[in-house]
Design a protein around this nucleic acid. Structure first.
Lengths: 93, 93, 93, 93
DNA sequence: ACACAAAGTTCGCGTC
DNA sequence: GACGCGAACTTTGTGT
């Protein structure tokens, strides 16, 4: 019932409700994630580094490698040492 | 036990596992949201408009609050204390 | 000339220099803004309120536009074409 | 003149004008930066990598090294290969 | 491939 | 002086 201009307003409302419900769940999960990071921080862990680790685990090895290579190319082109300028000062083009 | 580099690798792994688990759940929810949008689209609804409606529903309470604050802001700008003059007795010409 | 790894190192360096130069200018402006706020604070003004006023002045035109869109949105939701019924004749129940 | 409740509205307006003027300048600079990135992109450069290079140049070498070391520690603790698993499979602790 | 929108990250601020 | 909060900016993903 209550169709307006060819659209079932009830159906539309249903879709909107479902989406809003799911958005709430998503927010709740996000909050839990923040809590875990906070807990880890409380134990002395470096949150930023943990994020980095997780990001690396999520990334495809191929893509990661590609980005790093391109970065090296640019760094070389600028005459800058590679990202990790700790123990690789052996080869310069 | 099994400490590496001064940290408990088991504890670190636990944190990371928990986060990754939650991230998966979050992604699953996000996917469900996308599915609902897709379903609505299948019924002929305009997804963009639905997003807009949801966005507006989320913002309306906020905007109303903004309006209330606006009143206070201008009260302040005029040097008149708001209804609750708690901690702003610092303005001087 | 001076190509390294297939790219013109001179051109790349030029882009980076330009960006870094602009970033410095941007930071300088940001610092000036902070200084003005500090000066206002020194005269007894409530910085938070000034920020709020500026934010509101920036948002007001936007909000008016939002209101207009809102009308269209609800028109859509009701299945009524907006003033300009250009490309939305796809909604079906 | 036109003081209201102990505040010079003229002075307040002056502060606001100055800030808004500076904000405009800042936005203009930001736009120019975007333009340069766009131009570089048009020449085939990878914008994301350029951003990374600039970020690295901005970062203190000491801090960068520290972050990388900690990352390695965590990676080791998890039994994962170091970030750049390309040509350093020579030293393992 | 672009543009918009959402998320994450960082910086400045007030607080304890 | 450190911590947490809040806003601003940057970045990533998604939809067109």
């Amino acid at each position: 019932m209550t169709d307006v201009g060819g659209i079932s307003s009830g159906q539309l409302r249903s879709f909107i409700d479902r989406i809003e419900r799911l958005e709430e769940e998503k927010s709740a999960i996000a909050e839990q994630i923040r809590d875990v990071y906070g807990e880890a921080k409380g134990y002395g862990y470096d949150v930023k580094v943990i994020r980095k680790v997780i990001g690396l685990r999520k990334m495809e090895p191929h893509d990661r490698h590609e980005q790093e290579e391109l970065l090296d190319v640019y760094m070389h082109a600028l005459g800058m040492a590679p990202a990790s300028d700790s123990e690789e000062e052996k080869a310069v083009a």
